[in-house]
Each structure stands twice: as structure tokens, then as C-alpha cells.
Amino acid sequence: MNSTAYLIPEQTVAFEEEIKKSVFITQLAHTPSIESAKAFIDSVKKQHSAARHNCWGFVAGRPENSMMWGFSDDGEPSGTAGKPILAQLSGSSIGEISAVVTRYSGGIKLGTGGLVKAYGGGVQQALKLIQTIEKKITTLLRVELDYSLVAIVQSLFTQFDAEEVEAQYSDKVTLIIEVEVNKAEALTESIINRSGAKAMVSPVKTTRT
């Protein structure tokens, strides 16, 4: 699993322009899965049901994971809409992003080159408007320890940007800690060392992204 962080969209943006009397409306949104990408596409199609074309592309996972890519020309000549849209998205280094470009035709033919430029250019302009945030890849650790060691272990969390997400108190204390995947091993070693090997650290099966 790739544990490096990547950028994702912080909000939905739109960019509109008129080219030879055709209106092109580009909308970008954060879509963390293929299902959510398709839901966004469907919502735009309903929003612009009167438009002749709602062409789209998505990068539904990590930016470089082509298994999570998709695109459609939605009736435009093959290769003139979906591929240029996807090319802009996949080249942006932003993950979990979808684009739908709606075209209200003005009756003037743009030609294949004009369509490629219009669809790709709309996404390129919309990408300039978008704000991104960094998505960190995290995992969960279970720490079992005596009450006397809790403060010592908790003092390490800030150092490793770790967060305590759950605590259970019985004969011993069990803490569930969320930490970036690439810091989990170092945090585990530090907990064991600082506790004199009295704290037990184990991974929780679920990996969170």
C-alpha cells in the first residue's frame, strides 16, 4: 500500500465559457470513490438535463492509480471530450476528483480539434480555481498498558502527529491510536522503549484512508 499523502479537492468549483456560441460549463468535485464519482456525474446530468452533452472524467482514488479512472464522450465524437478531460485531471496530481463538462450547443461546429481544446481547456481553467488539502494515509494501533504508563505514552503522540481515538479502562488501559502509516513503526518502537517493553502494541486490522 502506498502510504504517501496526496492532494484532494476541498470544495466543488465551476468554470463557464462561451466558444463559438456553445456554452461550456465545467464542474469539479471531490469524489473519494467510483460510486461517488458516478453519483456526482448523475447529479450534474439532472441539473443540466436540457444540455446536449454532459461529458466527464474522474480520478476516483490516488492520482496515479489508473484502475480508478474513467471517462465518457457522452455523444461527442470519440476522443474529443472524455480523454481530454481525464488528461487534465490525471496530470494535475490531485486525487479523488471528478469533472463534468456540460455543453449547450450554439449550432456552430467546432471540429475535433476545437472540441478537444474546449473540453480540456475548461477543466484546465477550473483546476486553477480549486483549493486542495492534503490527504494523509493513516492506520490504527492498539496499545495495552498499565495505568502508570499512560502519561508517558501519551507524551509521544504530539511528536508523531498521532491521535488517541478511543480509550478503555479496566484492569489495564487500552488505547486506540490513529497515526500516519509511514510513522506507525517509529511510534511503536518509541512506545516500547519508553515503557521499558511493558506496553503491548499491535495493529488494528482496519486501515483508514
Rank of each mutant, 00 (worst) to 15 (best):
L89A: 06
G70K: 13
P77M: 15
Y147I: 05
S195A: 06
S49K: 15
K128L: 07
M1K: 10
A162T: 11
E178T: 03
I8R: 13
E189T: 14
V59Y: 01
P9K: 11
K21N: 12
K128W: 00
W56K: 03
F157D: 01
G82K: 05
A87K: 14
K45S: 10
E10L: 06
E164A: 04
N182K: 13
N65L: 04
I19R: 13
A37W: 09
K21I: 03
R208W: 04
G57M: 06
L127E: 00
Y119P: 06
P77G: 07
A37V: 03
A126N: 00
K117F: 03
T207S: 11
K109N: 02
F15H: 15
A5R: 15
S202W: 01
G57I: 01
I25Y: 07
A81C: 12
G82L: 05
I133N: 14
Q159N: 09
I152Y: 04
A151R: 15
D74R: 12
G107L: 02
I108Y: 02
T112W: 04
S148N: 09
V153G: 09
G70W: 15
I108E: 08
P203C: 04
I133R: 11
D146L: 03
G91W: 05
A197M: 02
T26D: 08
T158Q: 08
E166N: 10
K183L: 12
A39W: 04
G82W: 02
A167G: 06
V173E: 01
A186E: 15
G91F: 08
P9H: 03
L187M: 13
L110V: 01
N2L: 12
S22T: 02
A14L: 09
I192H: 11
V59R: 14
F58H: 14
K45D: 02
P63E: 01
D171N: 10
S78G: 15
K38V: 08
T139E: 13
A99E: 12
G75N: 13
A87W: 00
V100M: 03
V123F: 09
G91A: 00
I94D: 06
V101H: 05
E134S: 11
A81L: 06
I177Q: 07
S155A: 09
T26V: 09
V179T: 07
E96N: 02
M1Q: 12
V153I: 14
L187D: 01
V204W: 09
S92G: 03
K198E: 12
T112A: 11
L110D: 03
L129M: 12
L140F: 06
G106Q: 00
V173D: 07
A99Q: 07
E10M: 14
E18T: 11
K83Q: 14
E18K: 15
I85K: 11
S202E: 12
E18N: 04
T4K: 14
I34S: 15
R103Y: 08
